[in-house]
Every structure is written in structure tokens, then in C-alpha cells.
Design a protein around this nucleic acid. Structure first.
Lengths: 230, 230
DNA sequence: GGGACTAATGAACTCGACTCAGTTATTATA
DNA sequence: TATAATAACTGAGTCGAGTTCATTAGTCCC
């Protein structure tokens, strides 16, 4: 057995190496099965070294997931910008979310099962980015309402919750490793569901404009009065 | 400080006492903050005693949650049986789920954040009962299809996922202790959404539509006005 | 080549879940 | 009432994983 002394690396690089190994181990084993000892061993350092770079195991996972999530969402906007029309844009948001889960179940499990349950979650960029992207979905819906394409009589936040919650619920079995799902099929169904739920059933009647303006007033009142709510 | 020797209890009773204390501690502290030492202390036994009745801390939580869940769902059927019509029954399923979360956030957090992430989850009665009740929702939808009330062109499982996922997603902020939600309002919105998504497009009388939307505006204004407290 | 800096070490420590050989309280039997 | 059998309960200890820190030793620069 060799006692191979590790050559020293600049701070940044060692940090990157540890995170890289940690990502792999967390992904494969899940959070609690992933041992700091093993991460250290695979990274070719001693356990204590990890603690020179990260305050603890939890923080290490957070950093790893943050980095991954930023990478995953990098080209989101670009792709979305190319799409025209409510339906296409809505479907993209849903499909994309489903696809990420389908392609990266290990990472998604970590977010759903661990990260999101921790108190640190709120000050995570995962939290911020998720918020940002669900907000974007709300915007798409709101724009469709403003354009007279969608009705305004359902609270959009509930619709958003049905989309994102629905996506997650739909992928559970897969995430437990007990089955599969089709991102395309699910995205089609969910988009259709939202569309029917919000689209006007009948061509606009003359009093339409008046109603829309009344509703716009309500919205403004809500926003000014109710910034306490979510 | 007294060394009060515990009188011996029959197996069943001691078990019940431990579970009772454990439920309280788990509910208040969450799983990992709840220490077996503390549960033992509060139950008036020594730590080792817990392990005469439960194989481990996880199993103890499982048993506690199972017992609670069975209690919660006990009168479900009775109430459902009383309700007639797709809309009422559907709304009840949604509302009930929202209400349980609203009334018992501590327990629901344990299920969502811990139990469901464990491999043991599948052989839990929580798993079975949840399955049973989501199946019941599917049945309501299916019956409506059979009766010609709903269309059959969307996969019902996706609809069910949007319902249950939507409920959960909608309650996150509340479960993190950062806000509130109205089970009634959310149930109304979700039921409406599902209804529109699945009902045959029947041309609506124009006055009816106008009325419903005016009512929606009024409801929202009410909620805005009252959201300072929320 | 020597000093300053700091990456890295590894042994020790913490803290909580869990174990088990042994100790009684209780019950059954004589 | 005495005694044996049973099973509830104890508590001191083990174990294992995360975390700490005083110390060691590459690396850079003058």
C-alpha cells in the first residue's frame, strides 16, 4: 500500500475536484448513503480537507446542486425566446421540466427529497431560480389573459401549482425507480388541460372588453393590497 | 432528583405510550431534530426500552404516521358516500386533502419530507391508503366519462397527478411556515380547472358566463381585502 | 536556501442511534 | 405463602458518521 502524498492544488481547483466527485457520489448513492469518507477517498484527499472548503456535508450538497441547476437552466431563456404563441411556450415550460427529471433523476431526487426539506433551502439559488422559472410560467399565462386569449377567472397561482405539482407527482414512480413516463405525452396532456381550463369557450361577446377591464382593476387591487400573500 | 422506577406495563400499553409521545415530538421537532433520548425521557423510559418495541427510529416514525393516517382517513368514505354528482365529489376529494394539510402541517411535513423519500415507503400503509384514495379520484373521473359527462381524450392519470401534485405544490409555502392558504378557495379553483379541462364544451348561456365571472371578480376582491391577515 | 504562506493531514472528538447482558416486577404454579 | 418462570425494563457501552484542529509539509518568492 502506497502512501501517495497529494500534490497541492490552488484553492479553486481542489474545490472543483471535490465538488465533481461529490456530485457523482450524491447522485449514485443519495444523500445519507453518500459518506464524506468516500467522497474524500475518491477525490484523493483526507476527510478533513473537505472541511477546508465546505462548512459541512449539507452545504457541500447545496453547492453541488446549485452548480448543476445553473448549468441545467443556462439555455432555458434562449430556447423560450425562440417560441411564439401561448401554447408552444406553455408546452415548452412543462416539457422542459419533465425532461430534466427524466434525464437527471438522481439530481432531481436530491432536490425533491433532501434540499427542499432543509431550512437552508430558502437561501439557495435553487430556490431563487425555481421561483424565477415558475414566475415565467405565470407571465405566459398572464400575457395570454391580457391578450384576451385566456379567461381571468381562475387564480393563476393555482394553475401554476397544478402544472409544477402535476409534473412532480407524475414523475414519482419513475423517481422511485419503479417505472417510466413519457415527457412528450405528459407535456401534451398537461398543456391541453391548462388550455381548456383557461381558454375562452366561446367567441368574445361585446361586454368582453368591459369585463376584462374590471378584472384588470381587481388584479391591480390584489397586487397593491396583497403582497403579503405568495 | 428522584430516581422514579417505572412500573411495568403490558406490551400494548407501553407501545401506545411511546407512540403517543413520539408523535408529539416528531410533530414538533421534525424527524432529525427529534432525539430518541428525548422521546424516551418524555415517555418515562430509558432509550433501550424503545428498541424493545420498535426496530429503530425510522420504523417508529412509520408506525406513528400510519396510525395517524388511518385515523385521518377513517370517515373519508362516509362523507364521500353522502355526496352526489361529479363536481361535488371531486371537490370534496380536493378540499379534503387541502384541509388535512392545513390542519395537520406537522404530520404532513413528516410524510412529504421524510417518509416518502425512504425505501420503506412502499410497504407502508400510508402508501397503500394514499394509493387507494387517489384511485378513488380516478374512479370519479372515470364514472363521469362513462356517463358522458366528461370527455375521454385526456389520460386520467395525468389529471389525477395535476390534482394531487397541485394540492401539494400549493401548500408548500404554508408547510415551510411562511404563509397561509385557503382550502376552500384552492379547492374551488382546482375543481373548476379540472371540470373545464374534461367537461364537454357545452355552449354556455351568455348571461351565465357573465355572472360567473362577475362573481369571480367579487370573490377576488374579497380575498384581496382580507389578505392583510393572511 | 530560508521565510512566509497556506494546502493538506490524520488523529481525536462529538453526538446520536442502537445493542445486550443483566436486573427486577409481575404472574403462574406449588 | 414461597418459589419458579416470564417478560418488561435498565443503563452502560458500542458503533459509525460527521466534524475539528494542532501539526506537517509543498510551493512561491526574495
Amino acid at each position: 500500500m502506497k502512501k501517495k502524498r497529494q500534490s497541492r492544488l490552488p484553492r479553486e481547483q481542489r474545490m472543483r475536484e471535490i465538488m465533481q466527485v461529490a456530485e457523482q457520489v450524491f447522485r449514485d448513492k443519495g444523500y445519507s448513503e453518500a459518506l464524506t469518507a468516500q467522497i474524500a477517498a475518491r477525490a484523493g484527499v483526507v476527510e478533513g480537507t473537505i472541511y477546508r472548503y465546505f462548512p459541512g456535508k449539507r452545504e457541500l450538497l447545496i453547492r453541488v446542486v446549485e452548480q448543476w441547476y445553473e448549468r441545467i437552466l443556462a439555455d432555458y431563456d434562449q430556447q423560450l425566446k425562440r417560441l411564439q404563441g401561448t401554447r408552444a411556450r406553455l408546452r415548452f415550460m412543462i416539457w422542459r421540466h419533465l425532461s430534466v427529471i427524466h434525464n437527471e433523476p438522481g439530481m432531481c431526487r436530491l432536490i425533491f427529497n433532501q434540499l427542499r426539506a432543509w431550512p437552508e433551502y430558502r437561501r439557495t439559488t435553487v430556490f431563487d431560480l425555481t421561483r424565477e422559472y415558475t414566475r415565467r410560467t405565470l407571465e405566459i399565462l398572464q400575457q395570454a389573459i391580457d391578450a384576451g386569449e385566456f379567461r381571468a377567472d381562475l387564480p393563476l397561482r393555482v394553475v401554476r401549482d397544478m402544472i409544477y405539482g402535476g409534473v412532480e407527482h407524475h414523475t414519482w414512480v419513475y423517481l422511485r425507480g419503479e417505472g417510466d413516463f413519457s415527457p412528450d405525452a405528459a407535456a401534451d396532456a398537461m398543456t391541453e388541460m391548462v388550455y381548456r381550463g383557461l381558454a375562452h369557450a366561446v367567441p368574445e361577446a361585446p361586454e368582453e372588453a368591459t369585463l376584462r377591464r374590471l378584472e384588470a382593476v381587481a388584479r391591480r387591487l390584489e397586487q397593491s393590497a396583497g403582497s403579503a400573500t405568495v
